[in-house]
Nucleic acid binder design. Sequence first.
DNA 1: AATAAAGGTTCCAGCAACTGGAAGGTCAAG
DNA 2: CTTGACCTTCCAGTTGCTGGAACCTTTATT
Lengths: 131, 131
Amino acid sequence: MKINQLAQQADVPAKTIRYYEEIGLIKAPQRAENGYRIYRTDDVHRLIFIRRCRDLQISLEDIKTLLAAQSDNSAPCDKVDNIIKQQLKRVQVAREELCKLEQSLSALASSCQRNKVSECGILHKLHSEEA
Amino acid sequence: MKINQLAQQADVPAKTIRYYEEIGLIKAPQRAENGYRIYRTDDVHRLIFIRRCRDLQISLEDIKTLLAAQSDNSAPCDKVDNIIKQQLKRVQVAREELCKLEQSLSALASSCQRNKVSECGILHKLHSEEA
DNA sequence: AATAAAGGTTCCAGCAACTGGAAGGTCAAG
DNA sequence: CTTGACCTTCCAGTTGCTGGAACCTTTATT
């Protein structure tokens, strides 16, 4: 299978696949005589796994760890567990941050009644202490 | 006032101030004879404004627009209004995304009962269709 | 006065995770 | 036989900084 087929099946741009290879996230595949990369069905699964992790905004570094954990089947899964828990923490914190942001911004958005910048409540609030 | 004083008063690293100057977000200040940047009280206010906007995760591009709007006092504040509304939208979308992420991750986090990778529910779910 | 520490300056590199584009080789179809 | 799609490599750019080297100036201490 050539790179674009893999790309299509895993729903990951070909460019990104080459990038993943470059940074060592996936191993370099065999090459055809013309130099084209040749992939196996196995690679589709691995790449889909990676895409799912990326959908969950797990960093490439952490994905590397997850992949490594999988290649050693008898290893304890503390690492896997920790990564997911960490991610959950990160996402929770980020969501809380965004909630605060949302409040600030919606307060700002409702504060512009005039139509001249000099009288604009938004800019006034952004300049005042409490914004 | 020298750059580190400005940095302290506005709570923005000196390095970042130079960067803002470089990309044209703030204008180049006067220089002392020794080449040091000399800032005025005015600059403190502008920089605090910028920091507040960054706290709200408004992009430097948009902050540029907000600053430009302010320098033309008689301009209508549609632009300001639009930027804030856009930001609000962006933040709302991002928060919703994070809520979904949080659900997925917390489902994953609770799915590991065994202590071998080969039996790890987390990895199984990440490999299965629905993850 | 000599020297050390603190604070300036410039420029270059790197982070994450790609993405775009140039320049060129290969392959199937009309 | 040429057009167009697909492959290759390599280089550059994105966002918003941040770290560090190499160097100069000012201030404090011995």
